[in-house]
């Protein structure tokens, strides 16, 4: 007996924007390669239904100051290079296969090292010179300080077509102006809320920043810490985009490492939590599992930390894209 399998294929009316990060010398930058994300005509990995012309990519996280508060498990692989952002970035790319580098300007935090805009720009230059992959530069999270730092950093990386972040509903004017002036793309951040994701994009569009240059960051929660909320928001954003809501038809980014490596499940040694298994295996697994879930939700860029998690995730992407292990 044959069973008729119903044809469930959908034809979505709209395509997610494709966003290219990085510029080669031919394009006015110094990158040796660029990365294009987005461009989907269907839901994640629904190859039977539409196309996913660009595979999701993994960016590895580098700080402008030594990452003292990273748990041992995730610091160890970088122990020799933590003091040097350039060397750190180089290790990520050459040893661990990072497709982009995300430089987080943690050192600029006024409640921490409070480094100057020039120091931040120097770190950015160091990373840019050390590696040829495209760059993401993420502020320290203090709006006022970021608005001082980014003008210098964006200029220092002028023409490199970086992805800078983040703009929020309360703080978008400086970065949108810089993105336009120096040719960078932007990350638009919102707190796990589909309306606020739209709103921040609208604010950027209203000041003339093109929607094709925006990547959505809908916030990220580690597995066990609200992942399902973010998941459904991402799913809805993607469906809205495919249905034709141009304001959200953008690639999405997930900031995985920073979330995972701050939770007990990834950090607590086994003697504190008997039965949870070796923390050295558990932490990377947790990061990889979190990343996998977000891939299925529609993430186009994952920012990660642990080399083993990166390896697993890249392999997962490859398999999901129809390639072999």
């Amino acid at each position: 007996m044959t069973v008729e399998i119903p044809d469930v294929k959908k034809n979505w009316p709209h395509t997610i924007n494709a966003v290219t990060i990085g510029a080669t010398s031919a394009e006015g930058g110094t990158r040796t390669s660029t990365v294009t994300i987005g461009g989907e005509t269907t839901l994640p990995f629904y190859h039977f239904e539409g196309t996913m012309p660009n595979k999701p990519v993994v960016a590895m996280e580098v700080w402008d100051i030594p990452a003292e508060d990273w748990p041992d498990t995730v610091r160890e692989p970088f122990a020799d290079v933590l003091a040097d952002p350039g060397a750190w970035a180089k290790a990520c790319v050459e040893t661990f296969g990072a497709e982009l580098i995300c430089l987080r300007l943690k050192g600029c935090d006024p409640n921490g090292a409070d480094r100057s805009p020039d120091e931040a720009a120097a770190a950015a230059k160091q990373v840019a010179e050390a590696v040829g992959v495209p760059l993401i530069v993420w502020g320290c999270g203090n709006d006022d300080k970021d608005n001082e730092v980014f003008p210098v950093v964006a200029e220092a990386l002028s023409g490199e077509n970086c992805l800078l972040g983040t703009i929020t509903e309360d703080n978008y004017k400086t970065l949108t102006a810089l993105g336009t002036a120096y040719g960078h793309k932007l990350i638009a951040e919102s707190p796990v809320d589909i309306n606020m994701a739209k709103q921040v994009n609208i604010l950027a569009l209203d000041v003339g920043f093109p929607s094709e240059n925006i990547v959505i960051y809908p916030s990220t929660g580690a597995l066990g810490y609200g992942l399902e909320y973010v998941y459904s928001i991402m799913e809805r954003l993607r469906i809205a985009g495919l249905k034709g809501d141009k304001v959200v038809a953008m690639p999405m980014l997930c900031d995985i490492g920073i979330e995972v490596w701050s939770i007990k499940e990834a950090k607590a040694p086994e003697d504190e939590v008997p039965g949870w298994g070796d923390v050295k295996a558990r932490g990377p697994m947790w990061e990889a599992s979190t990343a996998t879930a977000y891939l299925l939700a529609g993430a186009d860029v994952l920012i990660m930390r642990h080399p083993e998690a990166v390896r697993i995730t890249k392999e997962t992407i490859s398999r999901l894209m129809g390639g072999g292990a």
């Binding site: 809320d193 589909i194 309306n195 606020m196 739209k198 709103q199 609208i202």
Partner: peptide
């Protein structure tokens, strides 16, 4: 809440 949030914009998130 979602309807409220989408209306908390000028004039509305959905122009």
């Amino acid at each position: 809440y979602e309807e409220f949030m989408s209306a908390k914009f000028l004039p509305h998130t959905d122009l």
